[in-house]
Computed example of a mutant assay.
Amino acid sequence: MLALALPYTLHVLAALIWVGGMFFAWLVLRPALAAALDGPSRLKVWGEVFPRFFGWVWVAIATLAISGVAMIHQRFTGFETAPRYVQWMIGGGIVMVALFLRVQTLLLPQLHTAVQKEDWAEGARVMASIRRMVGCNLLLGLAVVALASARWSL
């Protein structure tokens, strides 16, 4: 029983950190920064916030992958015999990682360059792209969490 409880607990905590962090950033931090700071200051703050959060996202991704594989091998004979909701969760997770990688490897360096050059128009353009990607990832993450929570009805 403990063998299944540990990976499950780690899986839920990792999802909570990643999806909860996006929820906080999108619905709490972003509006607060918009109300309190001018555009250049907001871009500078985001340039500091993202690397800190992304470190935790990497930990969450690794934990989700390892704990997910562990649970599949403990409960099923493999990926092909896992229930459909598990396969959908895996697919959703893969898309979420791809969106995250796009933000971290392509957009975040562009944001840092724009802030460094004080090119606020370019920074705002990049930040708008990041905001859309994070919004999509948040919606996908919430859908995956909802799917996992409602798994008994599938």
Results as ranks from 00 to 15, higher is better:
L37W: 00
M96W: 01
W26K: 09
W18H: 05
G91Y: 02
P7A: 13
A60P: 08
R131H: 11
D119R: 09
F23K: 00
M89F: 05
R131L: 09
L147Q: 03
A3M: 10
A124N: 08
T81K: 14
M127C: 10
Q87I: 04
G21V: 13
I66W: 09
A5Q: 08
A34T: 07
H73A: 11
V12Q: 10
I90F: 09
A128R: 13
G78M: 12
A148S: 07
G47A: 04
R132I: 15
R30F: 05
G91M: 01
G39D: 14
G92E: 14
D119K: 12
E48T: 14
M133A: 09
A65N: 06
L2E: 05
L108H: 01
A150Y: 14
G39V: 11
A98V: 11
L27N: 10
L6N: 02
V45D: 00
L29H: 07
L10C: 08
W46I: 04
A128P: 02
V103F: 01
F100P: 04
P51F: 13
V86D: 00
G92P: 10
L29R: 00
A14H: 08
V86Y: 03
G123D: 09
G68S: 09
A121G: 04
M89I: 10
Q104R: 14
Q116L: 07
L107D: 06
P83T: 02
W56C: 12
L107G: 03
L107P: 00
